[in-house]
Design a protein around this nucleic acid. Structure first.
Lengths: 337, 337
DNA sequence: TGTTATAATGTAAACGCTTTCATGATAAAA
DNA sequence: TTTTATCATGAAAGCGTTTACATTATAACA
């Protein structure tokens, strides 16, 4: 790989001049510019981004063209969508992204966060799940541009991109009610998770708005994982009388519920209606196609990155909070009560 | 952020000594070592990876602790599994990965590949899809450690991790035959893609081994995408008589077929049996649960990265070709003919 | 013509690290 | 005691950039 010096000597100029042309400085004579450009082409020179990053570090300029993305669970298609949005927007600006998938492993947290800092990233898009909040707050305060996604950070002023979970859930339940359902069950995720409580609120509010009394036996609290969907939907299905409709709190829970419903010999939507929070690209291939609340993951990721770049440019601008609407995709899993 | 110099002056030693302790050099007095370690702790010092990478560049040592991963389509859950495998193995060695998702956009290719090179990555795990092969070959020859995944690179000697597509397909079709099916259709991906032809070969071989004549009208060629599954399965379903079983060439095709089968009022497995190439974590939630050929994406990614690290350590070791078996996950989508 | 302002270029320091090489300290051997 | 080998440390160069600063060439003006 060639470097500035090679280009400089081939073009018979100094490395400073070469640097100026690759950075589009106006302080270079047109003739010199083409001379240098020819040399660059001939050597197939591409500036070394590592050196540039190190150099930029001195000016605290924050355009080393690399950002981090920390995600709780890449198996969740919603986060894959976020990733795509982040990556696309970043690449458009020639930024590269280091994706950090936490999975369930707690010990990765500090390791990854430390690594990201020593990679001198320009910024971070992060889903601040439980246990991460404190560290993220600290990083925000240290001056690293950060935008949060999917969840807010309590007590710290930071850019955030969310979806209106309450409204999304409200509309899902409203849809069920409109179809005539009254015994509508809800399988919630962990009640410590803000998104869970918002969705629960949406469920409650819809019931209340339609003067349907809330039956606490119809709401189950799990840990947002597949197994919880399996187990809690089983409880629900076995209750007497079983609910006529089920609203599941996220896509993993939906999966578990789906499996249990089939296993138990219930038919959708004849025996039970189903609406899931989170749409997936294969929802339409289900039999029947699943009615679901769609979170615009791609747009969220994209917008978050946009916000991040803005902040890099202006650390002092007031923080923004952008809220996307979730969209109810009505398909055929609900029928009527 | 503190740096070597800060630590050095706090510990009253030179930066060289500090560098030695963070690199576990044996050439440092135990007493000095603890002195330095205390200083490190007190300052919460973490070495800057960018600087280290730049420095290592001089020794061509190839442990800047960063690798690239280039994937054709992150929406495909198989590649998400690969990503997880790569990331886990990398992180265990404190490596970080830059994930490059190509999507369908051709213009991203050279951009991303160039960026990766100027990031001075230590190596690359890559799915060498059509159009990428030439560039990847060139990079291999330039001396960058590379391991290919899912597909081989014709004409270039390189490490590769594959699954036995032929055998996987063979077993899927064999399963169908054992169940009594004779009119087994196959929806293939692009015939230019090696994996497609291997799967097709498996299909053919199984038929042949069971003395079932190959009916060319039962094999359809698409572009491996969702829409092709939709369209080609429709053709198949409308043919007279329709096949009793369908084997789909990848998970996207399966999705399309699933949708079309439901739309057409066919019932699985009563009217038509279905086996998909590629298992997905939600296959079990389908009604009925889908019988599918599972590619061990996670292990593939992990093994590929292991191979990559080995190669970084020894550029001259002979190339390896590791082949994983695909596993037929038998569930309930096949019935009997 | 000589000044002076301006544009174009070059020089060198800095980013934070690793490592070679030189040097100093300590211990073992003579 | 001196010599020599060994261990511990420090000084400094180098990785490939960017940019502040210094310098030189060019143009504008008196």
């Amino acid at each position: 790989m060639s470097n500035l010096k090679d280009v400089a000597s081939l073009a018979a100029v100094s490395i400073a001049t070469v640097s100026r042309v690759i950075n589009n400085s106006s302080l270079v004579d047109p003739k010199t510019r083409v001379k240098v450009q020819n040399a660059i082409k001939k050597l197939n020179f591409h500036p070394n981004r590592v050196a540039r990053r190190l150099s930029k570090l001195r000016m605290k300029e924050g355009n080393g063209k690399i950002i981090g993305l920390v995600l709780p669970d890449i198996n969740n298609p919603f986060y894959v969508d976020v990733l795509r949005g982040v990556e696309d927007y970043a690449l458009k600006h020639e930024y590269v992204v280091i994706t950090c998938n936490f999975g369930q492993d707690e010990s990765r947290e500090k390791l990854y966060l430390n690594i990201l800092q020593s990679e001198s990233i320009d910024g971070l898009v992060v889903v601040p799940v439980l246990g991460l909040e404190e560290k993220v707050s600290k990083m925000v305060e240290s001056g690293l541009p950060i935008v949060c996604v999917d969840r807010e950070l309590t007590g710290t002023d930071v850019d955030v991109v969310l979806v209106d979970n309450r409204k999304g859930a409200y509309e899902a339940v409203q849809h069920l009610i409109r179809l005539g359902h009254k015994r509508i069950a809800f399988i919630s995720g962990l009640p410590q998770i803000p998104t869970s409580v918002e969705r629960l609120n949406g469920y409650r509010d819809a019931l209340h708005a339609n003067k349907i009394p809330l039956d606490e036996k119809l709401v189950k609290y799990g840990d947002s994982m597949y197994e919880s969907g399996l187990r809690l939907s089983e409880e629900l299905l076995k209750s007497e009388p079983p609910p006529t409709a089920l609203f599941t709190g996220n896509n993993l829970i939906t999966l578990g519920a789906l499996e249990m419903i089939h296993r138990s010999g219930f038919s959708i939507p004849k025996d039970i209606a189903l609406v899931g929070f989170d749409d997936m690209h294969w929802s339409i291939s289900l039999n029947p196609p699943l009615t679901a609340v769609r979170q615009p993951g791609y747009d969220i990721g994209k917008r978050a990155t946009e916000l991040l770049f803005q902040r890099s440019g202006d650390l002092k601008r007031p923080t923004a909070k952008v809220i996307f609407n979730a969209e109810l995709k009505i398909r055929n899993s609900c029928g009527s009560a």
